[in-house]
Design a protein around this nucleic acid. Structure first.
Length: 249
DNA sequence: AAGATTGGCAACCGCTGTGTC
DNA sequence: CGACACAGCGGTTGCCAATCT
């Protein structure tokens, strides 16, 4: 929530994300995956930069992002990791499943900074230190999913008129029900995505924004008449086919 | 009760790394 | 090998709510 939402001169919106924008991004990624952050926003009907979308997804909307207070164990891991790695937040985040670098960075600056320097002064070489991550029990990890999964579920469930579960043909995509059932979607599930077939995308937009599609209002750009989309689309289809071939999907 | 200050955190900006042509 | 595009990272900003005076 940096600035009140407003349209920039470039046409790109900045500031806080609205529920509607979240819904659009989540729905699009759930259906087509992440294929190109730069071009995706347009096809998802968002007037946001790719960077903004990526950040929003990585830090907030991704199903396995853990929200809420940090546990004692997590604090210890952060303190210890920071003493080893410094401000390499992404490396520290890698030791804390479900936590984002941004969240850890914020938490460090607001809660742990002073303690961190204090700890550094009193730190002794502990033979167990190198394996501190093992103190982060799997039971903690198991709790990671719940909150954010529920949040994303909420977003999707508000779109009562667009339940992808009804689409039996979308077997390769993540649906609301699959989030519900699995709860521990692997990151790479989203890394290899396909924009889908032209029919899929058309259907997607008809479901998501029937009015926008009718009027071509708001920020929606017709992807089917866009050369960038056509190029990216065909590239992505090729990659997707290759991926399916390689992994026998 | 109201204005000032502070803390928390989502989001932006600019830079760097990596892959592709 | 250089240019370009894209993804990712870390620092910073600024809004908003809580707390203080």
């Amino acid at each position: 929530m940096r600035t009140p939402s407003g349209q920039m001169s470039t046409g790109l919106k900045k500031g806080s994300w609205s529920l509607e924008e979240d819904q659009k991004l989540v729905s699009y990624i759930n259906r087509y995956g992440i294929w190109n952050w730069s071009h995706m926003p347009r096809f998802a009907g968002l007037s946001r930069s790719g960077k903004s979308c990526r950040l929003r997804w990585m830090n907030y909307l991704k199903p396995n992002v853990k929200r809420g207070n940090f546990s004692k164990e997590e604090e210890e891991i952060i303190l210890h990791s920071h003493s080893l790695l410094g401000n390499r937040w992404s490396a520290i985040a890698a030791r804390l499943p479900g936590r984002t670098d941004n969240e850890i960075k914020n938490y460090w600056h607001t809660h742990l900074k002073k303690r961190g320097t204090d700890n550094l002064l009193h730190q002794t070489t502990n033979p167990n230190d190198s394996d501190i991550s093992s103190t982060f029990e799997s039971s903690d990890i198991k709790n990671i999913q719940c909150e954010q999964v529920n949040h994303v579920k909420d977003i999707i469930e508000t779109q009562s008129s667009m339940t992808f579960e009804d689409d039996a043909s979308s077997s390769s995509t993540t649906t609301t029900s699959s989030i519900e059932e699995e709860g521990d979607i692997k990151d790479n599930h989203y890394d290899i995505g396909s924009p889908g077939t032209v029919e899929d995308l058309q259907w997607f937009w008809n479901q998501l924004c029937p009015i926008e599609n009718l009027e071509h209002g708001n920020n929606y750009q017709d992807p089917f008449s866009d050369s960038v989309f056509q190029d990216s689309f065909h590239d992505s289809i090729s990659l997707y086919c290759l991926y399916n071939h390689e992994f026998g999907i």
